[in-house]
Design a protein around this nucleic acid. Structure first.
Length: 228
DNA sequence: ACCCAGGGTCATA
DNA sequence: TATGACCATGGG
């Protein structure tokens, strides 16, 4: 009973999506040139600003190691040096190696494409350093599977809108979105991207700012639906 | 100087 | 199961 349930209708969620789309437009996510780059970015962006991830990926590209095989030819310390701008560089270097080893052991990306979404998700979660959000980023943006990504922004937004309780689990939020919305990859991709974009813009504002056409998400303020 | 960023793991109770 | 410590750079 303490399990907070996801209470939001399809109409509400689609309405929120439309408002965000109207406010921010198409986000063109995930910014990457390849599926492997999506996977690398998903690990590097853990609790890290994307601008710093871009610097790290630029270093990897300059070193021409944006593939599982090439990346594994580098020593962990050398790899850590390249991804230094993205923070947590020692542990992330190990996580990238774990990811690459798992990919090769599984027979590469082409073998993974044949897996069901749930099997592929279990595979990703079995990798040390890949948690729920990282796995779902990879599933949605790397493998085009209809999985809804839940991040801290999504949780905070839904809480402030009164759609979920504070203790709602990652899985309850994910299954809530996926049950209420049509399993549309493009919709899920855009929705998650728009929530992040909204949070980025709103968090840079001061309480009371009127330039947000939908929701005021200031750090010390509460999200409020605005009628503008 | 302080706060946070497109999280996850591990040790402890 | 549920907290807390830890990882670390860069921009506001």
């Amino acid at each position: 009973m303490s399990e907070q349930t996801f209470s939001s209708t399809q109409e509400q969620l689609l309405g929120l999506f439309d408002s965000l789309m109207l406010a921010y437009g198409h986000q063109h996510w995930w910014p990457a040139d390849s599926r492997f780059e999506v996977m690398v970015g998903a690990v590097l962006t853990q609790n890290t600003a994307w601008v710093n991830v871009e610097k790290a990926i630029a270093n990897l590209r300059a070193a021409d190691v944006l593939s599982a095989e090439k990346l594994l030819t580098m020593s962990p310390s050398a790899l850590a040096g390249l991804i230094r701008p993205s923070g947590y560089y020692n542990i992330k270097a190990q996580r990238l190696r774990n990811l690459c080893l798992a990919l090769l052991e599984a027979g590469g990306e082409s073998s993974l494409e044949a897996l069901s979404t749930s099997a592929l998700r279990r595979f990703l979660l079995s990798i040390n350093g890949v948690g729920p959000e990282t796995a779902d980023d990879i599933l949605l943006y790397g493998f085009a599977r209809p999985v809804f990504v839940i991040d801290a922004y999504t949780r905070r937004l839904l809480q402030r809108l009164g759609m979920v309780g504070e203790k709602a689990s990652y899985e309850s939020l994910r299954s809530g979105f996926e049950a209420a919305l049509p399993a549309d990859v493009e919709l899920f991709r855009e929705y998650h991207a728009l929530i992040v974009q909204h949070a980025k813009q709103a968090c840079a504002r001061q309480p009371g700012c009127l330039s947000c056409v939908l929701i005021d998400t200031c750090p010390s303020g509460r999200d409020q639906l605005m009628t503008v």
